[in-house]
């Protein structure tokens, strides 16, 4: 299954500059693991032991996956996953 993944500027060092990559899997976790096989290092920038990193927002189509099933959110062919770093500070 092809899932389109939109990569933010700060993570494009892992994708040779590509803004858009394709991944496969039945869940977000599987898609991110699949990306890691081609873009080594990208996985740990998005995920830690507890799940999605606090500083990173991940969207499935128009929804923040935190309001779905987080890292275990089911994905399907044609879905678009968007990764965006939080814009925040103190």
């Amino acid at each position: 299954m092809a899932i389109e993944v939109r990569i933010p500027t700060i993570l494009r060092t892992y994708t040779d500059g590509a803004k858009l990559v394709e991944g496969s899997g039945a869940t977000l976790a599987e898609v991110l693991a699949d990306l890691e096989t081609r873009y080594t290092g990208i996985h740990e920038r998005i995920v830690d032991e507890a799940g999605l990193r606090r500083f990173v927002n991940v969207y499935l189509n128009d929804e923040d996956v935190r309001f779905l099933d987080g890292i275990n959110t089911a994905v399907a062919d044609g879905d678009v996953v968007t990764v965006l770093p939080a814009v925040a500070g103190g």
Binding site: N57, Y59, D62, D64, R66, T82, L84, A86, V87, A88, G89, G90
Partner: peptide, 10 residues
Amino acid sequence: FYEFDSMDLL
């Protein structure tokens, strides 16, 4: 603290 709302950010 400040943070952009997640949907506004998208």
